[in-house]
C-alpha cells in the first residue's frame, strides 16, 4: 500500500502527503511515525530511496524527508499485483458483484 502511495504521489512524497493519501484511501487515521518505520524497512530492502528536502516555518524549521520508489520497488509492486490478480481470478463471484 505504501509503495502504491509513493507511486501516486511522485516527487511530492513525504510524511504529510503520504499520511494524507493513505487516510484518503483507507478512511483511517495514520500514525506518521509508523509510516517512517515501514519506509525504513522498505529502504533496507532497496525498494525505496529517500533524500532530505527543504525546511519551512510551518514545520518549525525542520527538513522534509522525501521518498521515491526504486526500480526494484516497481518490480515488487508488479509482482504483488500479479499475485493478487491470480488470487482474485481463482475466486467465485461475490454476492451481488463480480470478483
Amino acid at each position: 500500500m505504501l509503495l502504491l502511495a509513493l507511486m501516486r504521489l511522485g516527487d511530492d512524497a513525504y510524511g504529510v502527503t503520504i499520511a494524507r493519501e493513505l487516510e484518503k484511501q483507507t478512511g483511517r487515521e495514520v500514525v506518521v511515525a509508523s509510516i517512517y518505520a515501514s519506509l525504513d524497512r522498505l529502504q533496507d530492502r532497496r525498494l525505496v530511496a529517500s533524500r532530505l528536502g527543504d525546511a519551512t516555518p510551518e514545520r518549525g524549521g525542520r527538513a522534509k524527508r522525501y521518498f521515491r520508489i526504486t526500480g526494484a520497488g516497481i518490480s515488487e509492486v508488479r509482482d504483488a499485483r500479479r499475485s493478487l490478480m491470480n488470487l482474485w481470478n481463482g475466486l467465485p463471484e461475490l454476492k451481488g458483484e463480480k470478483a
Binding site: 510524511g15 506518521v32 511515525a33 517512517y36 525504513d40 525546511a55 514545520r59 518549525g60 527538513a63 522534509k64
Partner: peptide, 11 residues
C-alpha cells in the same frame, strides 16, 4: 527520522 517526524506533525 525524529526531526522529520516532528516537522510532519507540526505541519
Amino acid at each position: 527520522d525524529s526531526d522529520a517526524i516532528l516537522g510532519d506533525l507540526a505541519e
